[in-house]
Computed example of a mutant assay.
Amino acid sequence: LDAASGAYSDGYGRLNTARGVAEALVEDVSHERHVLFVKSGYWLVIDGLSGANEHRFDLLYHAPPDVDMTIAAQNTVRLENSAKSAALQIQVKGTAQLNLSVVRGADTPIQGWWSLNHHHKAPSNTLVAQAEPACRMLFVTLIAVGPDYSLQQTSPTSDGESGWQISGQHGLDLLQVSSKIAAQAGNDKPQFMNNLKLTRSPSNGGANSEELVLFDNVRSSNEM
């Protein structure tokens, strides 16, 4: 298992390209992301967002211009290159109802473009997972090669606790997420902190599962 995490809380806003500054800056939102590469064949991306006020949170995944995106059932998206020689499956779930759409080459607002350098752009597919307005939101994304993996929420969200089941050729894995709001030293912004625990299925027909505690109130890159 390889894992890494990062956090951002320095504000969000639209960039005024003429002035080179961000306008209408939103400063009350903290974002924490964890990426897990589970070497049986899939990736998990866990995004936790928290604000002092309600916001509409959109999660975006961008693809190169030659990659097709098709939305199927159960918030599953298939990505396939133009030669049909490679494909990925993405499943996006959240602690609130999500609306999934694919945007390509839109101007208002600008979305679904790919740029190799200045003064160049080409339409490309962007997956948009849009949540209802909330103060807190947790997105869990499963990325896998092939259609044989599934992500389901196994326990309802309560007091920041949620459980997620990943099924596939390897068996069943369980991800448990404990989300907390904590004060940040020297800053009055809320700090969104995720404690993660992944319970792996027995491998090679073994009898014992493996329990890994990840990111227990720490923010650092880890390799396990």
Results as ranks from 00 to 15, higher is better:
114 W>Q: 07
115 S>M: 13
34 H>R: 15
185 A>Y: 12
131 A>C: 04
134 A>E: 06
90 I>S: 07
212 L>F: 06
111 Q>F: 06
82 S>E: 12
110 I>M: 08
69 M>T: 02
141 T>C: 04
81 N>K: 03
196 L>D: 03
10 D>C: 04
1 L>Q: 01
2 D>R: 14
124 S>L: 05
98 L>G: 04
18 A>E: 15
20 G>K: 09
26 V>T: 15
106 A>P: 00
116 L>S: 11
211 E>K: 11
212 L>M: 09
200 R>L: 15
115 S>Q: 14
74 Q>L: 02
143 I>Q: 11
33 R>G: 07
83 A>P: 03
23 E>T: 15
38 V>G: 05
134 A>W: 03
118 H>E: 12
109 P>G: 00
12 Y>H: 14
172 L>H: 10
19 R>I: 02
219 R>C: 03
32 E>R: 15
129 A>M: 05
63 A>Q: 13
149 Y>D: 03
36 L>Y: 09
143 I>R: 12
195 N>V: 04
193 M>T: 14
193 M>K: 13
209 S>K: 13
125 N>P: 05
198 L>W: 08
56 R>Y: 06
176 Q>E: 15
106 A>K: 12
31 H>G: 02
148 D>R: 11
149 Y>A: 08
177 V>P: 01
220 S>C: 09
173 D>K: 01
149 Y>R: 06
22 A>K: 14
69 M>G: 00
176 Q>S: 14
38 V>Q: 13
53 N>T: 15
205 G>M: 02
47 D>K: 07
109 P>L: 04
180 K>T: 10
56 R>C: 11
66 D>I: 05
1 L>V: 06
84 K>E: 06
38 V>A: 11
146 G>N: 01
67 V>R: 09
87 A>Q: 07
145 V>K: 09
201 S>Q: 14
186 G>P: 05
100 L>K: 03
162 S>F: 10
216 D>I: 05
23 E>Y: 05
112 G>H: 09
87 A>R: 08
144 A>T: 03
32 E>T: 15
185 A>F: 10
201 S>T: 11
94 G>P: 00
35 V>M: 09
63 A>M: 14
156 P>W: 03
193 M>D: 15
206 G>I: 04
62 H>V: 01
117 N>L: 08
171 G>V: 07
135 C>I: 00
76 T>F: 01
196 L>V: 02
90 I>F: 13
27 E>C: 03
45 V>L: 12
23 E>L: 11
196 L>Q: 03
50 S>H: 08
74 Q>I: 07
33 R>W: 09
106 A>C: 00
111 Q>Y: 05
20 G>R: 10
122 A>F: 07
83 A>W: 00
155 S>L: 04
165 Q>D: 04
115 S>I: 04
157 T>V: 13
39 K>G: 13
143 I>E: 11
54 E>D: 14
125 N>Q: 14
5 S>C: 13
165 Q>I: 02
130 Q>F: 05
192 F>S: 06
127 L>D: 02
135 C>P: 03
53 N>S: 14
25 L>P: 07
183 A>P: 10
76 T>L: 09
41 G>H: 06
155 S>Y: 08
168 G>E: 06
190 P>C: 08
108 T>P: 03
12 Y>G: 00
159 D>M: 07
116 L>E: 12
19 R>E: 13
66 D>H: 15
18 A>F: 13
87 A>C: 01
124 S>G: 10
132 E>P: 01
170 H>V: 02
46 I>T: 10
6 G>S: 14
138 L>R: 12
7 A>E: 13
161 E>K: 06
174 L>A: 06
